[in-house]
Computed example of a mutant assay.
Amino acid sequence: MTTRRTVRFAGLAALTAAAAFSLTAFQGGSTDASASPASKDAVSISHSTDAGGAGGAKIRAGATAATETLADGSTARISKLGDLHYTAEIVSDGSVVATLEADQHDAGLDANGMYVVLGIDGEIHSWMGGEHYGPDTYELEGGWTAEVTKLGEQHYRADILDGEGAVVTTLDADEQDAGLDANDSYIVLSTRGVISSHV
């Protein structure tokens, strides 16, 4: 018997997975902090309420900031800006090298081979490795499948499929990386067409 995988998103119906970030040291110095939803048709994703996972940290109830060490030894300073709205400044050697903003949808970043997802619940996850390159179909961690398509220069899309091959959400990396917490499977798609996942 095949069980269909679904994804749900803490009270939001149609927004998922685009990353809003400014970047000074990684990926050529872009400072574009705009965000756009990955898919208007996307099914939403649920977030766990604990801080488990690979390098996961979450701001405790009542707090407005936290610091977490990331997979490459840098740190993330996480700040709560409002309901379902968090930022994470990534600090390396005393300097802020990137900022992720999760505002009503998750944010993701490919920081030269370290992958980071910041969720709308303030939880951050980072990992290294697990890359797939360019347009193709890939098996991801957590039982998901990604169909990656190149749409233009620094513009890739990944349809995330369940075990039955149905599209459950879409990541759109259009001049900025995109990230997603898919039921405790973390996925980043970069503007270079690299996709990586971790559980």
Rank of each mutant, 00 (worst) to 15 (best):
T3Q: 12
R5K: 14
R8K: 14
F9R: 08
A10K: 04
G11V: 13
L12Y: 02
A14S: 13
A17M: 10
A19L: 11
A20N: 05
F21C: 11
A25M: 01
Q27T: 05
T31M: 08
T31S: 09
A33I: 13
A35W: 10
P37L: 14
D41K: 10
S44P: 04
S46K: 13
S48T: 12
T49Q: 13
A57H: 07
K58T: 13
R60K: 15
A63V: 04
A65M: 09
E68D: 10
A71R: 08
D72N: 15
D72Y: 02
T75Y: 07
A76S: 09
I78C: 07
G82V: 04
L84S: 00
H85W: 11
A88Y: 01
A88V: 12
I90L: 13
S92A: 15
V97S: 10
V97K: 13
A98W: 05
L100K: 03
E101L: 08
E101M: 00
A102P: 01
A102N: 00
D103I: 11
H105F: 07
H105D: 01
G108A: 00
A111M: 02
A111E: 01
N112T: 10
M114V: 01
V117P: 04
V117E: 03
L118F: 09
G119E: 03
I124E: 02
M128L: 13
E131D: 14
E131C: 09
H132R: 15
Y133I: 03
T137Q: 10
Y138Q: 09
E139P: 03
E141Y: 07
A146D: 04
E147Y: 10
V148R: 08
T149F: 03
L151V: 10
G152C: 09
H155I: 06
I160F: 08
L161S: 03
G163Q: 06
E164M: 12
G165I: 14
A166M: 11
V168Q: 13
T169K: 00
T170I: 08
E175F: 15
Q176M: 09
Q176K: 02
Q176T: 07
D177K: 09
A178D: 06
G179F: 05
G179W: 06
L180I: 13
D184S: 15
S190L: 08
T191N: 02
V194K: 12
V194T: 15
S196C: 09
S197T: 06
V199N: 13
V199H: 06
